[in-house]
Lab assay of single mutants.
Amino acid sequence: SLEELLKLARHALRHGEEIHVLDRVITDEHEIKRLIEELERLI
């Protein structure tokens, strides 16, 4: 769900981890922040 993805993204950002989204691995902090902003808009 989007909520789950948002939780994962926030966790990854906090802990400096990578996040796997739709067969992509996002490691860049700015990309993760952008993902979080997009998800928050959708929810």
Rank of each mutant, 00 (worst) to 15 (best):
I43C: 05
E29K: 15
E40L: 10
R41Q: 09
D23T: 03
D28W: 06
L22W: 15
E29M: 15
R10H: 13
G16V: 03
L2V: 07
H11Y: 08
T27E: 07
R34Q: 14
I19V: 13
E17A: 12
A12I: 02
V21L: 15
R24T: 08
H30L: 13
H11F: 05
A9I: 13
E17C: 09
E31G: 07
H20F: 10
H11T: 06
I36D: 00
L8N: 08
I26F: 15
E17G: 15
L35S: 00
H30V: 12
R10Y: 15
E37F: 11
D23Y: 02
E18F: 11
L6Q: 01
E31R: 04
E40H: 06
A12V: 03
H20G: 04
H20E: 08
R24W: 10
H20W: 12
K7Y: 10
E31M: 08
E40F: 05
K7I: 12
L13F: 06
I19Q: 01
R10N: 10
I32F: 04
I43M: 07
E18Y: 11
I19P: 01
T27P: 02
R41F: 09
S1G: 12
R34P: 01
E29H: 13
A12Q: 02
L5H: 02
D23R: 01
R24P: 02
I36E: 00
H15D: 06
H11P: 00
H20L: 11
E3C: 05
I43F: 06
R34K: 14
E29N: 08
D23C: 02
E18A: 15
L2W: 11
E29G: 10
E3Y: 12
H15K: 08
E38L: 13
L22H: 13
E38W: 15
K7A: 15
E4S: 09
A9S: 04
L39S: 00
H11W: 09
L13M: 05
L5K: 03
L42A: 08
A9N: 00
E38T: 13
R10S: 07
T27A: 11
D23W: 03
R14E: 15
E38F: 15
I19E: 01
V25K: 05
G16C: 03
R41T: 07
H30Y: 13
L6Y: 03
E31D: 11
V21M: 12
R41Y: 09
I36C: 03
H11G: 04
I36R: 01
L35A: 02
L6F: 02
H20Q: 12
R14P: 01
E3P: 06
E3M: 12
R10K: 14
A12E: 01
I19A: 04
R41N: 08
E3K: 11
L5A: 04
L42M: 11
A9V: 10
E31Q: 09
L42R: 09
I43A: 04
E4R: 10
I32T: 02
I19L: 15
R41D: 06
E18L: 07
K33E: 11
G16Y: 04
R24V: 09
R24L: 10
L22V: 08
A9E: 00
H20S: 09
E29D: 07
R14L: 15
E3S: 09
I32V: 05
E31H: 06
K7M: 12
D23S: 03
L2T: 05
R41W: 10
L5N: 01
L2M: 08
E18M: 10
R14I: 15
H20A: 09
E37G: 08
E17K: 15
T27N: 10
I19D: 01
E18K: 12
L5E: 02
E17R: 10
L39A: 01
D23P: 01
R24E: 06
D23V: 03
L35D: 00
R34D: 10
R41K: 11
E17W: 12
L6R: 02
I43S: 03
G16S: 06
E40G: 04
V21E: 03
I43T: 04
L42E: 06
H11R: 07
D23Q: 04
R14T: 14
L13N: 02
I32K: 07
H30F: 12
L6S: 01
E31T: 08
A9T: 03
E31A: 09
L22Q: 11
R10I: 15
E37I: 12
R10W: 15
E38Q: 13
A9R: 00
K33C: 03
A9F: 10
R41P: 01
A12K: 02
A9G: 02
I19R: 01
I36S: 00
L35V: 06
H20N: 09
A9W: 14
L35N: 00
